[in-house]
């Protein structure tokens, strides 16, 4: 089953909801955590390859589920360093608000660089989740600016 449409987000969220009760161990997240809207993780061609479902506590991103295209659990990952503590975890907006992500890319971009719409993708491996923003410089050359939390880079940098 290949899930492509936005409406199927609900099914992804439902899968994550089942997993939330069995996989999440931290008592604070179990008690106060909520699932955020699933975001498709797309490859460079725009095909959905996996799903990112954040787990938020108030405005903090405590962790996330990653499901593959067949909705199998790939992993549950937590930003928490200590149990029942959210210290050091990123804000939800830093990882899910496309406006904020675009703004961070804009600060990194050259003054004359035009920016596209952010998309959630990955760098090299599907587990290296990152936002991508396609850009156009002088209408002749383009690149992708990557935004991973507070870290912004482009392939030309590396």
């Amino acid at each position: 089953m290949k899930i492509m449409s936005e409406t199927d987000n609900k099914i992804v969220r439902e899968e994550a909801s089942k997993l939330f009760h069995t996989i999440v161990e931290d008592s604070l997240v179990k008690r106060e955590g909520r699932l955020l809207q699933p975001i498709p993780i797309v490859n460079i061609n725009g095909d959905t390859e996996a799903w990112f479902i954040g787990v938020g506590v108030n405005d903090i991103l405590a962790g996330f589920f990653q499901l593959d295209i067949n909705l199998n659990l790939m992993r549950y990952s937590s930003f928490q360093r200590r149990t029942s503590s959210l210290e050091g975890c990123p804000r939800i907006d830093a990882w899910t608000n496309s406006g904020e992500i675009l703004e961070r890319a804009r600060k990194y971009a050259l003054p004359n660089e035009q920016l596209g719409v952010p998309f959630l993708t990955y760098d090299n491996n599907i587990s290296r989740i990152v936002w991508g923003v396609r850009t156009l410089i002088h209408e002749c050359s383009s690149r992708i600016i990557y935004v991973a939390g507070d870290y912004v880079y482009s392939k030309q940098d590396t």
Binding site: S77, S78, Q80, R81, G88, P90, V130, A148, Y151
Partner: peptide, 8 residues
């Protein structure tokens, strides 16, 4: 990954 943070 992600840089400067990491996840468990």
């Amino acid at each position: 990954w992600p840089p400067n943070a990491g996840v468990i």
